[in-house]
């Protein structure tokens, strides 16, 4: 039986420094580049199977598709970093696009887009208020508003498709800048802005703080409620922006133009490496994730796979991405010591 021998307390501590720097900084970098590697390998493979893939028309197709998802995903990334979620993407896109289509004959292109963004902000505000002040869990509140917004969209259009005839609008939203589709350029700008907002402002810090530990964030005196509402508003605007470009591309707007879009958006964010538990978010990952899904969908199309398979595949990839993320996170999880 051990008697009293006093050992050196200091000597046996595991040094957390190196191990955690590895975990905090190096690992995410590798896993992000891993994603880019997958994207490149996938593109090459698809290109080898179907050389049409590298045709300039097809590539711009992929970039368009990635931009719509990516724009909405920027807002979603901030929401998820805050431990929130918005399932009403499809509803916000429908309402704001219909607003654009309705307003265009009467106003300038700029005012139409402005109107869309304003509507996005208002619908985001509704979500934010419901979640923050009525205290409804976000996924379920926004599931409710998804149907609410869709209902509004259908009522507005009477269930019909509204054509979008303005040449200027179409030229602006489907044109290109130095060969790159305009929406993709806008996506890059929005992604950079979102990054700065999330990582370099007090607002972003508050979002990450309540995403990490909401109770601790409000006890630290952070303006949690305000930031929560605002991040929904920001997300609403980003959805509406995606909608404005989608309407331009489709040359029309209708109630079910973005049915099920929330899945694609969440999948892009999560596959990009933003964990659902909140506290962090990677915008680069989100853009890569959006590209990945766009390439995948395009490949399925080129290979002539039934479009129904896309439902199955998106869902399966989403589950796989989160399951892998959950394993990784739990391996690195800090457990309560003591």
């Amino acid at each position: 039986m051990q008697a009293e021998d006093v050992k050196n307390r200091e000597g046996t501590h595991v040094d957390p420094g190196n191990a955690s720097r590895w975990r905090d900084q190096v690992l995410p970098l590798i896993s992000r580049q891993y994603l880019i590697a997958i994207l490149i390998v996938l593109s090459i493979a698809v290109g080898a199977a179907k050389p049409v893939f590298w045709g300039s028309g097809n590539i711009s197709n992929v970039l368009f598709q990635a931009s719509f998802v990516g724009l909405a995903a920027c807002g979603m990334t901030l929401l998820i970093a805050g431990g929130l979620l918005d399932l009403s993407v499809g509803g916000v896109i429908a309402v704001s696009s219909i607003a654009v289509a309705t307003a265009l004959p009467y106003g300038t292109v700029g005012s139409a887009i402005g109107l869309a963004l304003l509507i996005g902000a208002v619908l985001g505000l509704v979500n934010g208020l419901l979640v923050t002040f009525v205290r409804i869990p976000p996924f379920i509140a926004t599931l409710g508003t998804l149907y609410l917004f869709l209902g509004l969209a259908f009522i507005w259009t009477g269930g019909k498709v509204i054509g979008l005839s303005s040449k200027n609008y179409r030229a602006l939203t489907t044109g290109d800048i130095l060969g790159v589709p305009t929406p993709f350029v806008v996506l890059v700008i929005v992604a950079v802005l979102s990054y700065l907002l999330l990582w370099r402002t007090y607002f972003g810090r508050t979002v990450r703080a309540f995403g990490s530990n909401e109770r601790a964030a409000s006890l630290a005196g952070l303006p949690v409620k305000r930031a929560k509402v605002l991040v929904f508003v920001f997300a609403g605007i980003s959805f509406a922006l995606a909608g404005a470009f989608m309407a331009g591309r489709l040359a029309s707007a209708e109630g079910n133009m973005a049915m099920g879009f929330e899945m694609d958006v969440i999948a892009a964010v999560v596959v990009g490496g933003t964990a659902l538990r909140g506290g962090r978010g990677t915008l680069l990952g989100t853009v890569v994730g959006a590209l990945l899904f766009a390439v995948l969908a395009n490949a399925l199309n080129l290979l002539g796979v039934a479009s129904y398979w896309q439902y199955v595949l998106t869902g399966a990839v989403l589950i796989a991405a989160i399951a892998v993320g959950a394993r990784r996170a739990s391996a690195a999880e800090v457990r309560g010591a003591g």
């Binding site: 810090r205 990450r208 703080a209 995403g211 990490s212 530990n213 109770r215 601790a216 964030a217 006890l219 630290a220 909140g278 506290g279 962090r280 800090v334 309560g336």
Partner: peptide, 10 residues
């Protein structure tokens, strides 16, 4: 501290 103090991801 764990549930009301630290912000673990920051």
């Amino acid at each position: 501290r764990k549930s009301e103090g630290i912000l673990p991801h920051l």
